[in-house]
């Protein structure tokens, strides 16, 4: 095992405490840190100073893409490429195009939202430097887990664990990962 730690972990159980911890660590100027929670805690992202997600713009792009595809497809196939007279109906009318416009807009939004979210969240990624740590795994059960990475400029192998313990963290320990 290497002697240089890759990060430090601390556990919290009280949701009100974790909110304050988030604000303090944010104000302390850490950049490569995170809080892992078993469920979304309202306001915690703001307390951590996370910027607003750009996902809504990605979703909107999906909507525009879906709608344009639907309109373009129906217009080009029906009114440009092969004009087929069916019962004297128009080759293209916005009225009859509505159902498919609607469905493809929804489909485009859904696909962009989900895969956009995957991209922003960086999944799938089947590796995490803390993954084998027992404390870290509690984050999907009932514990709020704070991690601060060793590559953060303000990280110190002695002071950062002390800082976490001072904030009330339980089971504070350095994590050594051989693969990185």
């Amino acid at each position: 095992m290497s002697t240089t730690p890759t990060g430090v972990i601390g556990e919290f159980t009280d949701v009100n405490v974790i909110m304050q911890v988030a604000e303090k660590l944010r104000d302390a100027g850490f950049r490569k840190w995170d809080i892992y929670t078993p469920y979304p805690v309202h306001g915690l992202d703001k307390a951590m100073g996370i910027k607003r997600s750009i996902l809504t713009y990605i979703s909107f792009a999906g909507l525009c893409g879906g709608l344009t595809t639907a309109l373009g497809l129906q217009f080009w196939t029906g009114a440009v490429d092969y004009k087929l007279n069916i019962g004297g109906k128009g080759f293209f009318d916005w009225q009859f195009s509505m159902p498919i416009d609607f469905e493809l807009s929804i489909l485009g939004t859904a696909l962009f939202t989900v895969f956009g979210m995957f991209h922003l969240v960086r999944i799938p990624t089947w590796y995490n430097r803390y993954q084998d740590d027992a404390s870290f795994q509690k984050a999907t059960d009932d514990t709020f887990v704070v991690t601060i990475d060793a590559d953060d400029d303000r990280f110190s192998a002695t002071e950062t664990p002390a800082l976490l313990a001072g904030l009330g963290a339980q089971n504070v320990h350095l994590v050594h990962t051989s693969v990185e």
Binding site: D34, T37, M117
Partner: peptide, 12 residues
């Protein structure tokens, strides 16, 4: 997919 429960992930 390697979900960890990160607040940065929950946010999105």
């Amino acid at each position: 997919l390697g979900w960890t429960g990160s607040t940065r992930a929950w946010h999105h």
